[in-house]
């Protein structure tokens, strides 16, 4: 095993008492070595930055290891650091009812290839979480069985939680009205 990772403390939380990283971090590092890139801490909550290619294996390990048993995928989301590179950071929040710990895994994703492996084969509940993340950020979850929009209408242009998305949207109200009225008439069978 390589040197212990240095814990990066968030500037906003500087000066708060440091706490020890959960045992899961050391075990993960033991297993995945350099795939674990960094360890960040904010007021006792830890985030582990992993290579996106190893995210699925890391999450499978955290779920299946009898000492850890992170069996609950709380959330899947992303952060847009536009205009920095790499632009996106996909975030998985895991909870262990066994150790009563919460662990956040993150993976950097570049703008020109915004894809990460889907976790639907590990957690069926990841299905809709990943669809929401795709809807809002345009992250492609490879291996997802049905990756389409979940909250916004199918014809919605773009991904609105990206930092460069115009606040008021791209389509005008007139365009939306035409879409809504024509669709209602088509489905009702009106002339």
């Amino acid at each position: 095993m390589s040197e212990p990772l240095q814990v990066i403390v968030d500037p906003a939380a500087a000066g708060t008492p440091a706490s020890a990283p959960p045992a899961a971090v050391a075990l993960l590092r033991e297993r995945h070595g350099d795939g674990v890139r960094a360890l960040m801490e904010n007021r006792g909550q830890f985030r582990v930055l992993v290579e996106r290619g190893q995210a699925a294996e890391a999450i499978r390990f955290l779920r299946d290891d009898p000492r850890l048993r992170f069996t609950f995928l709380v959330d899947v989301t992303a952060i847009d650091f536009h205009p920095a590179t790499p632009r996106f950071r996909v975030t998985w929040v895991l909870r262990s009812y066994h150790t009563k710990e919460t662990l956040v895994l993150q993976a950097d994703v570049p703008e020109d290839d915004p894809s990460v492996p889907s976790m639907t084969h590990l957690f069926p509940g990841a299905d809709w979480l990943e669809r929401e993340c795709f809807d809002m950020f345009g992250i492609r979850f490879t291996g997802h069985p049905d990756l389409r929009r979940i909250l916004l209408p199918d014809v919605f242009p773009g991904h609105p939680l990206r930092k460069d998305y115009p606040m008021a949207g791209i389509m005008t109200d007139q365009e939306w009205a035409e879409h809504i009225v024509s669709r209602a008439q088509r489905e009702e069978g009106h002339d």
Binding site: L152, W176, I180, A184, E187, E188
Partner: peptide, 14 residues
């Protein structure tokens, strides 16, 4: 919302 607008318009038509 735009998505709910589809339902509002359909219900109005009905």
């Amino acid at each position: 919302t735009y998505k709910m607008g589809e339902a509002v318009r359909r219900l109005y038509d009905q």
